[in-house]
Nucleic acid binder design. Structure first.
Lengths: 220, 220
DNA sequence: CTCACTTTGTGCTTACCTTCACAAGCGCAT
DNA sequence: ATGCGCTTGTGAAGGTAAGCACAAAGTGAG
């Protein structure tokens, strides 16, 4: 389930606060979901709760981590070191959540060879070699959209089977490869859509009120 | 619908290629969705297609943009100028898609007053003032998780009604405020989950094959 | 030991979303 | 003018997920 990481984060915060036991109600509130949904999700992993008491935080953290495959560190390559790639390379949230950035790759000669966040930047030409040598199964694509598909194809050919795509393109991959995409413009456009509807709604309200007033006046 | 931006991007690419008419089948392939779904989504906006022919690309771009509220430029504020905030401020994809970054806000005195991507960085203390003066309705939060809720509350109080949250926290807001979140670790964890299952599946396969072999041997 | 209280795990209903399949409509060739 | 082929728009079926509501199960006090 795609909500497990959310629960895991909430559990981590609780553990940091020294909480040892949590009810589905509390955890659901912390994760922003319905409590029945949370219990159903957790029951899918097995019966790790105690009726009348709740869930043991540490034990649940372990079980959820295990289910998510986070008991080991996954080696990750970041391809494309523009502003976004840099930000991702420097983002501390990865290391603390079971991911180890093991390679940085770019095509720009001005960047290749320099050190970013403690890692040497490798040239795109050596992509396959780096992926194979370092046993990388998960890749992050933060290149321009034009080259994203080509990079993707090469990653897949080199054995990568999970890709996180920040480029605004639809990537086509074999069905045994998992792709998730993050598109910031797209998210903003969805917000604009709702914003637009709010404005339209309030305009309609004003029009409606105006018409009511008119009707009153005419009715007199 | 949350897929309209996806269609819009595909349509933009087609328009750039000089394509004037497109069938639902082609557009669906370009956007990576089912053609029936696409037709139903578009029919919700009205009947803008011609049977036997398809959709006029330019006209459809206009209609979708209108529905998304992208015929005007939305002013946006970015709060938090760490690596990610910088990347967002420099991202060209916003301006070309109907968004104008009008303000950058941070709490770090070392950054306040400097210029990033052609805009002066304002101090967090002046957040409300900037939002009101520049008529900002959409905000991007790229601060550390600890201060995200506080920043969010202040934004809402200042009149912002749509928020794109990059901080790994669940924000609580009044129900008339729309929040969308982008959490990169979360996406990676979902990938790790699938990766994990692939490994588990292939291990199971090996075990199963081994058992088969054993059964054969024993059967002899 | 028993009873009252708490919280999990889950059967069932409801709502939504996806997809198939086809009638209706349009253009073009003859 | 007529018929053929293509594509849209949509009714209906199927599937999936959400949430209510309650039985089962555990705790602790008296």
């Amino acid at each position: 389930m795609a909500r497990l990481p959310l629960y895991l984060r909430a559990l981590g915060l609780l553990a940091d606060d020294g909480v040892s036991t949590v009810s589905s109600e509390e955890l659901a509130a912390a994760a922003g979901v319905n409590s029945a949904k949370l219990r159903k999700d957790l029951s899918y992993l097995g019966s790790y709760g105690t009726r009348g008491v709740g869930y043991d935080v540490d034990y649940l953290v372990y079980q959820v981590s295990r289910e998510l495959g986070l008991t080991q560190d996954w080696p990750v390559v970041i391809v494309g070191l523009g502003h976004l790639g840099h930000a991702l390379a420097n983002y501390g949230g990865f290391a603390s959540r079971g991911f180890a950035i093991r390679a940085l790759v770019d095509a720009d000669p001005a960047i290749v060879g320099t050190e970013v966040s403690g890692l040497d930047v490798t040239h795109l030409d050596d992509l396959e070699q780096v992926v194979r040598e370092r046993g990388i199964a998960i890749a992050v694509i933060s290149t321009p959209a034009q080259v994203a598909q080509e990079v993707c194809d090469r990653l897949v050919a080199a054995g990568v089977s999970s890709i996180l795509n920040f480029a605004p393109t639809v990537l086509s991959v074999p069905e045994d490869v998992e792709v998730r995409k993050v598109d910031m413009s797209l998210e903003l456009q969805i917000l604009a859509f709702h914003e637009q509807r709010k404005v339209a709604a309030s305009t309609a309200e004003v029009v409606s009120e105006t018409l009511d007033t008119l009707a009153e006046v005419v009715g007199r």
